[in-house]
């Protein structure tokens, strides 16, 4: 099925962008002209010109839901790897349990995975996360894969259409963290299918008509 895939415009760092609009994300200006600062795709949204990077690490933003892995324990906090340039501390006051001093290991131990929210980020890049909110919890079992954080919106789709389609077709439970970590739980066949579909989305994130192709892939059932 090698039909022609239309591709969004790709720019490289330092490439001039000849588009109307105000400079948005991933764009810098010099002498009144706009240039891309990433290898990415250009898009124009509500008056702003943005460049969405095709790869790169996750930059934490306040309010993002992320999936993180516990990498270290301390008496008053856990250290969580959220796939960002920095580790994030999870303080005992930010979890729904009452934790005695030095007793952090009883609730979460190294290697556990949590669905958390970024509660604060400062200009030095320090990040704090919390579990104290509806729906945030430790994730038990399941399967974890990682994608580039810039492709998360494509995996979720418009108003969650893509992710809903994946869930409907495979009966899997799926959580997508803004940091590009995806947790999947369900039957082994379902998980394999979801992973294949997500890899396909990742590979073709910069093309048009992706939802239809993924739908076709899911309905075909194999390969």
């Amino acid at each position: 099925m090698e039909e022609e895939k239309r591709i969004r415009k790709i720019v490289v760092p330092g490439e001039k962008i000849d588009m109307e609009g105000k400079p948005g994300r991933g764009v810098f200006t010099e002498n009144g002209k706009m240039y891309s600062s990433y290898l990415g795709i250009v898009e124009s949204r509500s008056g702003y010109v943005n460049v969405i990077p095709l790869s790169g690490c996750y930059i934490p933003k306040k309010g993002d839901k992320v999936i993180g892995k516990i990498v270290d324990l301390a008496p008053m906090n856990w250290v969580v790897d959220i796939n960002a340039p920095y580790y994030a501390p999870l303080h005992v006051n930010d979890v729904p349990w009452r934790v005695e001093f030095g007793d952090t290991g009883r609730f979460l131990s190294i290697g556990d995975v949590v669905l958390a929210k970024v509660s604060n980020v400062n200009e030095m890049g320090q990040v704090w996360i919390t579990l104290k909110e509806q729906g945030l919890r430790k994730l038990e079992g399941g399967h974890i894969i990682q994608i580039s954080p810039s492709k998360v919106p494509r995996v979720i789709g418009k108003n969650g259409s893509m992710i809903q389609m994946l869930k409907d077709h495979t009966n899997c439970r799926i959580y997508v963290g803004q940091n590009g970590v995806i947790w999947i739980s369900g039957s082994p066949e379902g998980i394999i299918k979801v992973i294949k579909a997500i890899r396909m989305i990742e590979r073709e994130a910069h093309t048009f008509g992706l939802t239809d192709r993924i739908k076709e892939f899911l309905e075909r059932g194999d390969e």
Partner: peptide, 11 residues
């Protein structure tokens, strides 16, 4: 660097 998604002024 460009492939790693690191922001740059130019190649």
């Amino acid at each position: 660097l460009a492939h790693a998604g690191i922001p740059m002024r130019d190649l």
